[in-house]
Design a protein around this nucleic acid. Structure first.
Lengths: 362, 362
DNA sequence: CTGAAAGCGCTTACAG
DNA sequence: CTGAAAGCGCTTACAG
């Protein structure tokens, strides 16, 4: 922690080197009006005489005035900033969702504060702290959990919240998600229709909601085709390529070996793909593989990865829309509060008909 | 823009539903001291009697008090936030740099505000506006440009700035970069040593500083081995996989075809790799390929990509260290203001000895 | 339609 | 070592 007297020297530097910051008083003086009038001109919050408005606008232009955000936030009790809680900023999946959020929110004057919660639990308290400190007007949770601090969770603070991507089961705030169960069911049906009977599943952490939805859906799709997901053929990773690679090392030893695999995300699928290929297996000739998410890299591995494209930007945009309404004081009706979008199967080159039975012993 | 009267209703909601925010006055009352004493206890900016300190700490714990950030920023003239300007948040390369920045800065109590400048120039003005509005105490530029607004650039505001990754040539503020020229020279030498004489280059946008450094270094490395980069074998993309794929389509038509390619980043290399493989070329048997950056995906393509690993976290951490010193009012001596780190060659499977001459006509 | 004045929640000289 | 008071730069009832 930098001692505060050092802060004093920053002030000196800023004042010395930079231009002295223009305040609303400077603008008012130049325009020959009160600061109240300048404020009204800037916020368009009250009707002003066109001549007065012009006077203020000219003074703003001449001075290059920018309102001080801290003062505005303190007085106005709103920061015009939204906190986005991300589980892992390094996962390229989230950049699309962030873009959707940013597009929609910035159109309404809001900025984004990104909180990368990572694997560390201590960050949870930081998140709550940011809200308690009055830094944000709303929160978007992409992480599937309600952050808590010292026993109390975020919902107790009365700030508008929405969850996007990873739904939170018992929560009452609006949520936007993809039809994970449906898509995974389709993955099962698709593999079964290709003749696969020995099928494996590569999932995420056991308690993760996406993992639970996708595994359940996949099982259902297989079951409907008279197929069963055998316990020994379930590998759980952590959504990273490394964990996909790890699962692959067990997979290649399996006897008999499954002829198809559904991975709960693309990164694990890509780690898995590379590793079984290195072990001499061919995709899709020996093993069919389906991923989930539709990240750009899935299109640049060999073979291209069959996967489900999530409508990433739309997820972000719809989440932002709901949050904007909540921040405007609107109550979201329960039937509107749960938005579900489709994930679309991209049928590419990593899936094919199951090899003939004898191929298994080749 | 949401009209401000709506803001009023937010206030009402927060006050009604949430807990009334605890202020420093509440804590002072409970502890039986003045607000000044509470403030001093929290900032450790002055010596307090241990008993007084304990009183305040107990009151803070009882109330769950969190200082209001806007008030603190307004009064203290420092926001404890650093703005990081990123050219493209979707590029996984930056997440490592951001992590390094975040580690170092958060240890000193600073938060990060990420400005994704993207391809749009209008965002430049927004960046300057954030600084003018007093929202941040320092700026880290990862984008290779000094943002400007209405003719004036960021340096005119007297705020501490550092550049990381993409150096800015005429700038006088501290910069942290990788030895791009050296690494690229090594790429040229490496390919030449493997016997490659027909070599192509896949670069970034012509005016980009990394592109210029890497192309120049590569030429030098080739030249030292008596090799020349022919004009027809220079492809310029935009650092995306799609542009690498596009370049590959020209590449496969070339007669005679180069036997080796150096790409100025991994994403282009991966787009290129996939596309020439799809056209029937084998890597490294027909074509050797070197990338740059060392992103994680480079390890999961087939074959694994020979590339240069950038010390991403170190870049971020060193940039943060310099910025912290500048924000503390220190003047950075010129000899310290230009930090250069090594990029390390990861010699993996996408490079091999040049095929025998007749192989070209096979 | 516009202004004077209060006040948002802090920090920090200034006193003692 | 601690307190009373000023003031950071805005917005917004309240008046007129």
């Amino acid at each position: 922690m930098i001692p505060f007297h050092v802060g004093g020297s920053i002030l000196v530097r800023l004042r010395r080197e930079g231009t002295q910051a223009v305040t609303i008083a400077d603008v008012a003086r130049l325009a020959g009006v009160s600061t109240a009038t300048v404020s009204r001109a800037l916020s368009a919050s009250a009707a002003l005489r066109p001549e007065t408005l012009a006077l203020v606008e000219a003074a703003v232009a001449r001075t290059g005035y920018m309102p001080n955000v801290a003062a505005r936030t303190l007085r106005g009790r709103r920061s015009m900033v939204v906190l986005v809680v991300v589980p892992d900023i390094a996962n390229p999946f989230f950049s699309g969702v962030l873009r959707g959020l940013e597009d929609e929110l910035s159109q309404h004057g809001y900025g984004l504060l990104i909180g990368d919660i990572g694997p560390h639990n201590e960050k949870q308290a930081q998140i709550v702290g940011v809200v308690q400190a009055g830094q944000v007007d709303g929160v978007v949770l992409l992480n599937g959990h309600i952050p808590r601090k010292a026993g109390r969770d975020l919902t107790a603070l009365g700030i508008p919240i929405v969850a996007v991507c990873e739904p939170i089961e018992k929560a009452t705030f609006p949520q936007v998600e993809v039809r994970n169960h449906e898509a995974a069911r389709q993955a099962g049906a698709h593999l079964a229709a290709l003749g696969h009977r020995h099928v494996a599943y590569l999932g995420g952490p056991a308690r993760n909601i996406l993992e639970r939805q996708r595994q359940a859906g996949f099982r259902e799709g297989l079951a409907e085709a008279g197929c069963e997901l055998q316990p020994g053929w379930i590998f759980l990773g952590d959504f990273t390529m490394a964990s996909g690679a790890l699962a692959a090392r067990s997979f290649v030893m399996a006897v008999p070996r499954p002829t198809a695999v559904f991975a709960a995300n693309d990164e694990m699928a890509i780690g898995f793909l590379k590793t079984i290929q290195a072990a001499g297996l061919r995709v899709p000739d020996d093993v069919s593989l389906i991923g989930f998410d539709g990240i750009e890299f899935a299109d640049f591995v060999e073979p291209t990865l069959t996967t489900f494209r999530q409508p990433r930007e739309a997820l972000g945009r719809m989440g932002a829309g709901l949050l904007l309404r909540a921040m405007a004081g609107e109550t979201i009706a329960p039937e509107e509060a749960r938005v579900r979008l489709d994930a679309v199967l991209l049928d590419r080159d990593s899936t094919a008909a199951a090899p003939a039975p004898k191929a298994l012993s080749r």
